[in-house]
């Protein structure tokens, strides 16, 4: 089914005003965000509020702009000077593109886990200590404590505690991804962005990651990009459906999956499109 066959009512965008979070405040406020690569639009006039200490899932067909949106939230696009942006992103009320914003500090607050695990070519310990050291922590005792805490939070401690000084590259894919999560947790972020964190993993590793995500929301805000509908349904509290750079529908996960307002959403989640 092509976009042309949607009715006019259906293609009308829903603003985040539709969703309110009765029990929490908003973490990210995205307002009229448009983003283009070399003039080619990838996000169009996107407005969305992400709730604090909840798991929000971004779903949508491949190439719809999920990763682009995620990378906008910690300003990874800054590295690419072909990217142009319009609109605002606020984190806890503060514009992340403001003049007085320290990008490195922003990225520490907004941690990111990528699709393929990317541990550094160092030991397990050094991987986790990496960001902590950047914060100026030098004392061995303190580092040891943070490393252990982070590895435990990422449910990896029991598997690696015997040899923390083994190379991170000797771990399995699932372990590596949990190591990357531990590494990110170690710098105490407020938000954790996860870009298809389990898509390269086997089912058992995927389950472990999902458990982990559910457990972490008491500590921080999580945003999960996934193309796996069941996964979104299992772990997220809110779900946003993106299509061709636009936000199509945004609702509490239960509502979106059981009672979508739009045909486009229904078609996608039932597997007829995308």
């Amino acid at each position: 089914m092509s976009a042309a066959s949607f009715s006019a009512a259906e293609t009308q965008r829903f603003s985040s005003a539709v969703v309110d979070f009765p029990s929490t405040s908003s973490c990210f406020d995205i307002e009229a965000l448009s983003l283009a690569y070399e003039g080619k639009p990838a996000l169009r006039d996107l407005t969305l509020r992400v709730p604090r200490h909840r798991v929000t899932a971004f779903i949508g067909p491949s190439g719809c702009g999920k990763s682009t949106l995620l990378r906008g939230l910690n300003r990874l696009h800054d590295l690419n000077d072909q990217v142009t942006r319009n609109g605002h992103i606020r984190l806890e009320g503060q514009d992340i593109h403001g003049r007085d914003v320290d990008v490195a500090e922003l990225r520490r607050r907004v941690g990111m886990v990528f699709q393929t695990p990317n541990p550094f070519p160092m030991s397990i310990y050094e991987n986790v200590a990496y960001g902590v050291r950047l914060q100026g922590v030098k004392r061995k005792r303190e580092l040891d404590e943070i490393v252990e805490w982070a590895l435990q939070s990422a449910a990896l401690w029991e598997e690696v505690k015997a040899d923390l000084h083994a190379s991170a590259w000797t771990l399995s894919g699932g372990q590596q991804q949990r190591l990357v999560i531990a590494r990110t947790l170690a710098v105490r972020p407020d938000v954790l962005l996860l870009d298809e964190p389990a898509s390269a993993l086997d089912p058992i590793s995927t389950l472990k990651i999902e458990e982990l995500i559910r457990g972490l929301k008491s500590q921080l805000t999580l945003i999960l990009v996934t193309h796996n509908m069941q996964q979104a349904a299992r772990v997220s509290d809110y779900t946003a459906f993106l299509h061709a750079g636009e936000l199509v529908e945004y609702a509490p996960t239960d509502t979106l999956f059981t009672n979508p307002r739009l045909r486009r959403t229904e078609d996608y989640i039932t597997g007829r499109v995308g």
Binding site: L76, L79, A104, R107, R108, G111, F120, P121, G131, L134
Partner: peptide, 25 residues
């Protein structure tokens, strides 16, 4: 790999720190 550079930046490293601690080694 770009992934490693981005991994470092995403942890709050500056470009120089990333260069010194990941890229150059």
């Amino acid at each position: 790999p770009v992934a490693l550079r981005e991994g470092s930046l995403a942890l709050g490293a500056t470009r120089f720190e990333t260069l010194r601690r990941v890229v150059v080694p």
